[in-house]
Amino acid sequence: MSAPANSDVFDLTVDLVSRASITPDDAGCQALIAGRLQAAGFNCEHLRFGAVDNLWATHGSGAPVLVLLGHTDVVPTGPVEAWASDPFKPEVRDGNLYGRGTADMKGSVAAFVVAAEQYVAAHPQHTGTLAVLVTSDEEGDAIDGVRHVATVFAERGQGIDWCITGEPSSTDTLGDLLRVGRRGSLTGTLTVKGVQGHVAYPHKARNPIHQAAAALAELTARHWDDGYESFPPTSLQVSNIHAGTGASNVIPGELQVLFNLRYNPHWDAPKLEAEIAALLQRHGLEYALKWHRSGEPFYTPEGRLRSVAREVLGEFAGSAPEESTGGGTSDARFIAPLGAQCIEVGPVNATIHQIDEHVRVADLERLPDLYRVLIERLLA
Score class of each variant (00 low, 15 high):
V75Y: 02
S319P: 05
A350R: 15
R377A: 00
S169I: 08
A131N: 03
W291C: 06
G327D: 09
S136V: 13
D356A: 06
I22D: 07
L258Q: 14
A142C: 14
I352M: 04
D356C: 07
L66S: 06
E365L: 08
T325W: 07
T325F: 07
V308D: 00
G326I: 13
G95V: 13
P76D: 04
E302F: 00
D226K: 09
F10N: 03
C342M: 05
V132R: 00
V359D: 05
T234Y: 07
G60M: 05
Y371R: 01
V146M: 01
P321S: 04
L285Q: 08
G145N: 04
E376C: 00
G181A: 07
L130R: 10
D363L: 06
L338W: 12
R206E: 10
A34F: 04
A277V: 13
D226V: 12
D11H: 06
S330P: 03
P233F: 13
Y228Q: 10
L338K: 08
G128Y: 05
R19D: 02
V114Y: 01
A205Y: 00
E117H: 04
A116V: 12
T300R: 00
E365A: 11
V134T: 15
L367M: 12
P24G: 14
A205P: 04
A212L: 13
V199C: 15
L219V: 08
D137S: 06
T102C: 12
Q256S: 14
P337L: 03
L364K: 10
A309H: 01
H123C: 09
G35H: 14
E138H: 07
I355M: 12
G157S: 07
A131V: 07
T129P: 02
Q354N: 15
N207Q: 12
S2V: 15
L219A: 05
L255S: 10
D141S: 09
S21T: 14
V17L: 05
V65M: 01
G28I: 08
R310E: 00
D369K: 13
A31R: 11
T220E: 10
R147M: 03
A214V: 14
Q118C: 14
G101L: 09
A121I: 11
V192R: 12
Y98Q: 10
A214M: 11
P64F: 00
S235M: 14
S330H: 07
R183P: 09
D369S: 13
A3Q: 11
E296Q: 09
T13S: 11
E139R: 15
R333G: 08
D225W: 15
Q256A: 14
R282V: 12
Q354T: 15
P265L: 01
I241D: 01
G60D: 02
S7E: 05
A121M: 13
G314Q: 02
A142K: 10
S136R: 08
L130N: 08
I33K: 08
V238N: 13
G70E: 03
E344N: 09
V74D: 05
T329V: 15
D94M: 02
H358P: 03
T72D: 01
L47H: 09
Y228E: 06
E81L: 06
Q354I: 14
R304Q: 11
E155R: 15
A274Y: 10
P76A: 04
A288G: 15
F42A: 02
G326K: 14
D104E: 03
G28A: 05
P24K: 13
V132W: 00
R310D: 00
V114Q: 03
D53E: 12
E344W: 04
F10E: 03
L69S: 04
P321F: 01
I209E: 12
R366G: 04
S18D: 02
I276L: 11
